[in-house]
Design a binder for these strands. Structure first.
Length: 249
DNA sequence: TCCCAGGATCCGT
DNA sequence: ACGGATCATGGG
């Protein structure tokens, strides 16, 4: 299988917040390791076990893109322009915390907050554990710029650390059950829950509706249901979202 | 100065 | 069920 360099766009598509792109070179963290990826070493993605899983290489995106392109011309345009985007398979805990932080926030600032959390509560690379975060204070989190999300992060950390919320249990739940389960944490509503299901549990049939997606569905799809993209709502969503933040649609 | 950012929550109606 | 106000912060 050929891996094209544009899969790296996935790292800067708003689903993960640990990578920075400079002239086509993507540097950032997966798990406890720093990666520097570009067209030069793109084939490492195939041979490295972590990367292979992270980029969801087992899934045949060509077939899915062909199918989605047949559904609507706008989606077809997004896929033709940004065809490399994949749904990453990210760490569950990190994704949960990260998307709590995404609430009413912008991607640049989310990345900054996460970097400060990693530096303050970990080694600057690994995402801090729930148990470490559960021991901090709202004031401390406020000092890192979390704003009103500080209490949400603390609530999530405590519930995960205490075992009240067990992220492995969601593996056995369907989407509705998982969404409902996540919403037991303050600061998680439908949209954030859907992002966690899509970007950490690889539930490609969920469709997080943020401000961009709402605009696009209203502007181009006459507010039709996302079911028109079934069973790949999540993948369609990511093409539309990325195209929106890149000002293509 | 105002508006917006991968929202959630609370409070009227 | 639905709409609006509010939450804290930085960038345009």
């Amino acid at each position: 299988m050929m891996i094209k360099p544009d899969v790296l766009k996935s790292l800067d598509s708003g689903q993960c917040f640990r990578f920075k792109e400079t002239n086509g070179v993507y540097k950032g963290v997966i798990g406890d390791k720093v990666y520097t990826l570009s067209s030069e070493n793109i084939n490492e993605i195939k041979s490295d076990k972590v990367l292979y899983n992270f980029f969801d290489l087992d899934r045949d995106y060509n077939k899915i893109k062909e199918y989605l392109s047949s559904i609507h011309p706008v989606l077809k345009k997004c896929i033709e322009t940004e065809g490399g985007i994949r749904i990453l398979k990210q760490d569950k805990e990190e994704t949960l915390f990260s998307f709590i932080l995404s609430s009413c926030n912008n991607i640049t600032r989310i990345k900054g907050i996460i970097q400060r959390l990693c530096s303050t509560f970990s080694d600057g690379i690994k995402f801090p554990s729930a148990s470490v975060l559960s021991l901090t204070t709202v004031d401390k989190l406020n000092s890192l710029g979390l704003g009103f999300r500080s209490e949400y992060i603390l609530d999530a950390a405590r519930k995960i650390d205490s075992g009240k919320i067990d992220l492995t249990r969601v593996d056995k739940m369907d989407n509705d059950e998982g969404r409902c389960y996540f919403k037991n944490i303050n600061g998680i509503g439908d949209k954030v829950a859907d992002c966690i299901l899509l970007f950490a549990y690889n539930r490609v049939d969920v469709f997080p509706k943020d401000v961009h997606i709402k605009r696009i569905m209203s502007e181009y799809f006459n507010n039709e249901s996302e079911k028109i993209f079934s069973p790949y709502q999540g993948i369609a969503q990511q093409f539309l979202f990325y195209s929106s933040i890149k000002n293509i649609i």
